[in-house]
């Protein structure tokens, strides 16, 4: 546990979460969600849970961001009805 490192990650984590919730553009929101996942991965690695951090890096920051972006590309602002 490195206290300064913890504080930096946690501050960035809260900032990333707030931006991801508040930003209007869905594509930006999903990219910032990827940053959030990567920061959580750093936090877990720093707490010694390397396996969980590995999973978060591959699933949370990697594939789920791609899936969100794929979904955003297939949505439109107007309904086709």
């Amino acid at each position: 546990m490195i206290f300064a490192f913890d504080i930096i990650i946690l501050v960035f984590l809260v900032v990333a979460a707030l931006i991801s919730l508040n930003v209007k553009d869905l594509l930006s929101a999903s990219m910032i969600y990827g940053i959030y996942g990567f920061l959580i991965c750093l936090l877990w690695a720093e707490m010694g849970a390397v396996d969980v951090a590995f999973t978060e890096a591959s699933v949370g920051a990697g594939v789920s961001t791609v899936l969100l972006v794929a979904t955003v590309f297939n949505t439109r602002r107007r309904s086709s009805d």
């Binding site: 390397v50 396996d51 951090a53 590995f54 999973t55 591959s58 699933v59 990697g62 594939v63 791609v66």
Partner: peptide, 25 residues
Amino acid sequence: YVVAHGHHSPGGGFQGGVILGASFI
């Protein structure tokens, strides 16, 4: 490597599988 070395270092089937799937993505 992550799959094959998962019981000696961090990693395993889930992580290795996700990385392998990501290579196709």
